Amino acid sequence: MKTDLFTCGLDAALAVIGGKWKPLILFHLAHDTRRYGELSRLIGAVSHKMLSQQLKELEADGLVHRVDYKEIPPRVEYSLTAFGLTLAKALAPLCEWGTAHAMEVGKMLANRSLPR
């Protein structure tokens, strides 16, 4: 792939983690191997269709490893690849920023929804 497709490194990173759910998936997988249902509960508001789609894309991109144990009931586990772990570590400071500024962000979002 040509690197001149991106204006900067952030552009390249956002091409991989674009969307609302991928960073959350990476965050939860950075802490442990997870089953599908566990990921769904941890993330919360994501639909099953969207979670499945995002996991498939992350797997296709080489960030997530999927193991299907071919059991009944089905047991599938997801974990980060070494490459995925590098991205999860890069997202950690952003998570820390969000935690430190959650109150201000909440106020910001509330102000956005006020009628003008």
Rank of each mutant, 00 (worst) to 15 (best):
P23A: 05
P23N: 14
P23C: 03
L24T: 02
L24D: 06
I25S: 02
I25K: 13
I25D: 13
F27R: 06
A30N: 11
H31W: 12
H31S: 10
H31Q: 05
D32A: 12
T33V: 15
T33F: 01
T33I: 11
R34L: 15
G37S: 05
L39G: 05
S40L: 09
R41D: 07
R41V: 06
R41L: 07
R41M: 04
R41I: 14
L42Y: 05
I43Y: 10
I43C: 12
A45W: 00
V46G: 00
V46I: 15
M50S: 11
L51I: 07
L51K: 15
L51V: 15
L51P: 08
S52R: 02
S52E: 15
Q53C: 14
Q53K: 12
Q53H: 07
Q54R: 04
L55K: 10
L55R: 07
L55A: 01
K56W: 04
E57R: 05
L58Q: 12
L58P: 13
E59I: 06
A60Q: 11
D61P: 01
D61V: 00
G62T: 13
G62P: 14
G62D: 01
G62F: 04
V64Q: 02
V64P: 04
V64W: 13
V64G: 14
H65D: 03
H65G: 06
V67W: 12
Y69N: 07
K70F: 08
K70L: 06
E71R: 15
I72P: 12
P73I: 05
P74C: 12
P74N: 07
R75M: 06
V76S: 11
V76C: 12
A82L: 04
A82S: 03
A82I: 06
F83S: 14
G84I: 08
G84H: 15
G84E: 07
G84N: 11
L85G: 03
L85S: 11
T86F: 00
L87F: 06
L87E: 00
A88V: 15
A90S: 04
L91Y: 09
L91Q: 04
A92H: 10
P93T: 12
P93V: 09
P93I: 06
C95H: 10
C95F: 02
E96P: 06
E96S: 07
E96H: 08
W97P: 00
W97K: 01
G98K: 12
T99M: 03
T99L: 02
T99Q: 04
A102F: 15
M103G: 09
E104K: 04
V105T: 10
V105Y: 08
V105C: 15
K107N: 00
K107M: 02
L109S: 10
L109V: 04
L109M: 11
A110G: 01
A110Y: 05
A110W: 07
R112E: 13
S113C: 06
P115A: 00
